[in-house]
């Protein structure tokens, strides 16, 4: 398959690193373009354009880390901070708008009440994505 446009959704977990590296490898092959987006969620009690400095700084730091990774991988990536009410719809919408061929997401193994849990974002993206999705799951840390 050919991946000319790849969207990587990053959230600050360790899994992001591998997801970004994988995106660069896949894009390099087809000389494609990679976008990395970090989504800042804004509570409904605030207007969507509310600037919450701490959250924006956090998102910028995540994207700075992405840029360092892509520098090491020797590939250029465009990064963007998005403000949205929810992460899932924001990623899907971004994918639709940019007409990407692939969404790549890093995912950390999580347990909720003793059960393996995917959270809300991953199932939403898998269900609603307009394109193939690759999910990179970080190895579970054994305690």
């Amino acid at each position: 398959m050919e991946y000319k446009k790849i969207l990587v959704a990053v959230g600050g977990s360790d899994a992001d690193e591998e997801a970004v590296k994988l995106a660069c490898r896949l894009a390099k092959k087809d000389k494609g373009k990679v976008w990395a987006v970090a989504v800042v969620t804004i509570k409904r009690a605030l207007p969507l354009d509310a600037e919450i400095q701490s959250e924006i700084t956090k998102a910028e730091a995540i994207l700075d880390r992405v840029e360092n990774i892509t520098d090491e991988a020797d590939y250029e990536v465009e990064t963007d901070v998005l403000q949205a009410r929810e992460v899932g719809p924001a990623i899907v919408d971004e994918a639709v708008e940019r007409e990407v061929d692939l969404i790549l997401m890093g995912f950390k193994y999580k347990r909720h009440f003793g059960q393996f849990n995917l959270g809300n974002v991953v199932p939403y993206v898998l269900k609603n994505s307009p394109c193939p999705v690759i999910l990179y799951q970080q190895q579970a840390v054994t305690e």
Binding site: I56, E67, R85
Partner: peptide, 11 residues
């Protein structure tokens, strides 16, 4: 690289 500080995602 980030011309606007952030973009609003209208859904």
């Amino acid at each position: 690289r980030r011309i606007k500080r952030f973009r609003l995602r209208r859904v």
